[in-house]
């Protein structure tokens, strides 16, 4: 129930951002759209297992936005550098996150990190393509996973 309420509030906020009108008929249509979205969301993402607190996730947003700034800067630097310093390669990050929702959230967030791009899920973990194989990508990924796990305690495998 709380899940449903959280989502309802989030979608209602989204509607109000789009259409900040308090006229009754605008609100009525908004209510219909928000109810529909909440219903669809609950059907698609049942809150029972591996639940992701959307609110908690939103708290992580600013950090990853900042990461994406760094990532853009890094790529631009490499692209403009006359020597184009690249040492591309693949690394495998062994994650403890559950496959599916948690892991996909992780890869989506980490795809914004500088110099790494998730490309494949294997039994050993997630394969990343990196621009510079010598950087400490695995350590950084581990830090990010810890952050994600902090806000989503259920996301990890029970070992």
């Amino acid at each position: 129930m709380t899940h449903a309420l959280t989502r309802f509030v989030l979608f209602a906020l989204l509607w109000l951002v789009l259409m900040p009108s308090l006229l009754w008929y605008d609100l009525l249509i908004g209510l219909l759209a928000v109810l529909a979205a909440t219903w669809v969301s609950l059907r698609l993402l049942p809150p029972t297992r591996g639940s992701i607190g959307l609110l908690a996730l939103l708290m992580l947003m600013p950090r990853f936005v900042w990461q994406s700034v760094m990532a853009g800067w890094e790529v631009a630097w490499r692209a403009f550098h006359p020597k184009m310093p690249l040492a591309p390669g693949f690394i495998t990050y062994p994650t403890a996150l559950e496959p599916g929702l948690a892991r996909n959230t992780f890869t989506t967030l980490t795809s914004l990190l500088p110099g790494s791009l998730p490309c494949e899920h294997t039994r050993d973990g997630i394969v990343y393509h990196v621009l510079d194989i010598h950087q400490a990508h695995l350590e950084q990924l581990a830090r990010e996973e810890q952050r994600l796990a902090d806000v989503l305690p259920t996301a990890r495998h029970t070992p």
Binding site: F11, L14, L18, A37, V40, L44, L45, G100
Partner: peptide, 27 residues
Amino acid sequence: DASGILHYAARILVPIGVVIGGYIFWI
């Protein structure tokens, strides 16, 4: 592929799309 990325995207994006679609319709 239930753990695939498309699956994931659909589950997150579709509800948001419903709100935005409703808004575009109503505006």
